[in-house]
Amino acid sequence: MSATDLVIDVTGVTKIFDGKKVVDSIDLSVRRGEIYGFLGPNGSGKTTFIRMLCGLLTPDAGSGTCLGYDVRTQQAQIKAHVGYMTQRFSYYEDLSIRENLDFIARIYDVPDRGAAVDRSLERLGLQNRSKQLAGQLSGGWKQRLALAACLIHSPQLLLLDEPTAGVDPKARREFWDEIHQLAADGLTVLITTHYMDEAERCHRLAYLAYGRMLARGTLAEVLSTVNLTTWTVSGPNLRTLAATLRGRPGVEQVVAFGNMLHVSGRDAAQLEQAIAAVRDGSHEWTRVRSGLEDVFISLMAGAKDNFA
């Protein structure tokens, strides 16, 4: 793999706000055409990290390149070739859809602007609503507009910050189909999300908590970062059962998922002992493969301990 295949290649990126390391020595390489997922609880530094990649913030430490340009010194060049979708809708609510797209196209000096705006309206199915004010759109349509706008100058890298927050499942599915299509055409995508199903649609993942990257790699690699054993249990009085289980040696987390509990721990034998002690035949116990969510909860709990 040649160096130019790395669209993002940074090491030791750090950002300090008010003496707090909000992003702490993060290394990241993302290949061309890859969909890279960023996960982590609120406040873990995802937005801050993305802002450093696209030249909105200057890293306090660390170095590297984005699209081959230095993230510390060539911010202007990076801006010209990146499409950045902010976490909060940041187009003009008092401008119509077309006016917003036209504005962005002018700012990037897109050749044959009118046609480019038409194409992007068409591709996102917005042509019938082009005169509607952006402020009157629902969450899903706003998200489509934002995606259309950040694609209009044909960027080589898309940075999407929680693009599907507050969007219904059907629209989310369509959005991901679009993202996969774009990636197949060679666009590189870095995307943050809180949805596990979306995480599973990424080529690779990274999990952040408290500014540090706790796990990264393919789905399988991330799952094996923590050697977690998980049991599910269903039956009556789950709340009482959960209270009894918590705090027993070997039981590291008890999480309710619908009508069942996920009971996990890193020491399989100790966990089994703890379960055996409360097992009385009134519940149904099954050992399952730990899911992403189980792993992330475990990672975060561990990180919190380190952080405190």
């Binding site: 699209l67 081959g68 202007a76 060049q77 801006k79 010209a80 070739h81 003009y92 008092d94 401008l95 006016e99 504005f103 002018r106 700012i107 000096d109 004010l133 080589q156």
Partner: peptide
């Protein structure tokens, strides 16, 4: 990747802002 220097001032971008401000002014009764 275009080799143009992004540092140079651009009439396009300036005009984009002017137009946008006019539209916003018109909308803000």
């Amino acid at each position: 990747m275009s080799a143009e220097t992004p540092r140079r001032l651009s009439a396009h971008r300036l005009w984009a802002i002017v137009l946008k401000e006019f539209i916003q002014m018109k909308r803000d009764r």
